[in-house]
Computed example of a mutant assay.
Amino acid sequence: MTAPAPAPSFDARPLTEPVDPAAVRAFAAELRSRRTSGMAVSSIIAIVAVSIAGLVMLPILFTVVLSLAASTGSPGAAAIPLVLIVLLAAAVGVLIWMAVRNGQATRYRLHRFAQANGMTYEPRVDDPPLPGMIFQLGRSRLATDLVRGSHPRFVEFGNYQYTVQSGKNSTTYRWGYVAVKLDVPLPNIVLDATGNNGFGSNLPASFQRAQRLSLEGDFDRHFTLYCPEGYEQDALYLFTPDIMARFIDNAAQLDVEIVDDWLFLYTQRKASTLDPATWAWLFGAVGALLTKFDQWARWRDDRLAAQRTPPVTAGSSGGHALPFAPPVGLLTPPPGVAPQGRRLKRTGTWLPLIVVIGFAAFWLLTRWN
């Protein structure tokens, strides 16, 4: 196992140093001016909800005050509930104002952090077009606080959420992620980190056990690796001992997915945050892996060459050897992945079924007893 790679130096001061309120307001106004698609759907829903609540509650409030005044004969006593409601509304308003102000300051700090480190900041992207497993689920898909760098290759740090509907109930799932652009498409490979699992895997997808590949050394203690059937040798080519050591030393608490020409690191806490320690951790993990991605660029899928190049038979040359060698380009597979290696085969989760069977068995036992 190699020594952990040191975290690359970066300027974390903008994350914590005081900010100028005027600069924060100017940046918030700039972000609002960038929106060309009109008011956000969430803002429209909030305005409609507040308006409906006002239209419903105000008549009820005045009716209650008039009733109390008539029954007690004291307008002052009847006004007490009104005063309490006004104070409560004022407190809620102050809390909303503080939340908005803190959100603006957070976005401004992340913007300055990105600038100080040669990166860019984007406050939100609806339904981001990324191929990772978490980006294909649910509805109301939203990535926020995206910090992007382009050298030595494109890297994006962000927070992501989506909502899954189950009957009348809905659950919102939140992730932090790092997306790294690779040089060539690679087979779909998942590393399920064992260190962040609870009762089973924390990943939102499960994969057929036939695709599980055991690697040498301590790697299996830290990750469960899945690769498409038939791509075991390709996974061994990609995950050489030095690369396995990098993942163990720097990404053992992160789930990893390679899909198309992307590598994703997943965590169930915010990746884009004001915490300098989180940035040091993620920058260190990415920096340690970037130095090994160049050798991945040389990988080619031999299955594509077999599909694109027709076999040369004796009949095709009149029974004699060809007078010239086929061009090298016909023998070298192009960058890409054959269809059978582009996506892992998934399987349904058994946990909900086990829970239902358990409740049914418990109910039957209680009835019989």
Results as ranks from 00 to 15, higher is better:
residue 191 L to R: 06
residue 192 D to G: 03
residue 193 A to E: 09
residue 194 T to F: 09
residue 195 G to W: 13
residue 196 N to T: 05
residue 198 G to S: 04
residue 199 F to Y: 06
residue 200 G to K: 01
residue 200 G to R: 00
residue 200 G to N: 02
residue 202 N to I: 04
residue 202 N to S: 04
residue 203 L to F: 11
residue 203 L to D: 08
residue 204 P to I: 01
residue 204 P to Q: 02
residue 205 A to Y: 08
residue 206 S to V: 08
residue 207 F to G: 02
residue 207 F to H: 06
residue 207 F to C: 04
residue 208 Q to A: 14
residue 208 Q to G: 08
residue 208 Q to S: 12
residue 209 R to L: 11
residue 211 Q to L: 10
residue 211 Q to R: 13
residue 212 R to V: 00
residue 213 L to S: 12
residue 213 L to W: 10
residue 214 S to R: 07
residue 217 G to L: 05
residue 218 D to T: 02
residue 219 F to K: 05
residue 219 F to P: 01
residue 219 F to W: 09
residue 220 D to S: 07
residue 220 D to E: 09
residue 220 D to V: 03
residue 220 D to Q: 03
residue 221 R to Y: 09
residue 221 R to F: 10
residue 221 R to T: 00
residue 222 H to G: 00
residue 222 H to Q: 11
residue 222 H to M: 10
residue 223 F to D: 02
residue 224 T to I: 08
residue 226 Y to I: 10
residue 226 Y to K: 09
residue 226 Y to S: 13
residue 226 Y to Q: 06
residue 228 P to R: 09
residue 228 P to E: 07
residue 230 G to F: 15
residue 231 Y to N: 07
residue 234 D to I: 07
residue 234 D to C: 05
residue 235 A to Q: 09
residue 235 A to G: 11
residue 235 A to M: 10
residue 236 L to Y: 06
residue 236 L to K: 14
residue 237 Y to Q: 15
residue 238 L to P: 05
residue 241 P to T: 06
residue 241 P to N: 00
residue 242 D to T: 04
residue 242 D to V: 08
residue 243 I to V: 07
residue 243 I to K: 06
residue 244 M to E: 08
residue 244 M to C: 04
residue 245 A to Y: 00
residue 245 A to K: 03
residue 246 R to W: 01
residue 247 F to E: 04
residue 247 F to N: 04
residue 247 F to I: 00
residue 249 D to L: 09
residue 250 N to K: 14
residue 250 N to M: 12
residue 251 A to C: 05
residue 255 D to C: 05
residue 257 E to D: 09
residue 258 I to Q: 02
residue 259 V to E: 01
residue 259 V to G: 03
residue 260 D to N: 10
residue 260 D to L: 02
residue 261 D to K: 15
residue 261 D to E: 15
residue 261 D to V: 03
residue 261 D to W: 15
residue 262 W to D: 11
residue 263 L to C: 05
residue 263 L to S: 03
residue 264 F to I: 12
residue 267 T to P: 15
residue 267 T to G: 13
residue 270 K to E: 02
residue 270 K to R: 13
residue 271 A to S: 14
residue 272 S to R: 11
residue 273 T to S: 11
residue 275 D to M: 02
residue 276 P to N: 07
residue 277 A to T: 13
residue 278 T to N: 09
residue 278 T to R: 04
residue 280 A to Q: 12
residue 282 L to M: 06
residue 282 L to D: 02
residue 282 L to S: 02
residue 284 G to R: 15
residue 285 A to G: 00
residue 286 V to F: 02
residue 286 V to Q: 03
residue 286 V to Y: 01
residue 286 V to E: 01
residue 286 V to S: 01
residue 287 G to L: 14
residue 287 G to Q: 13
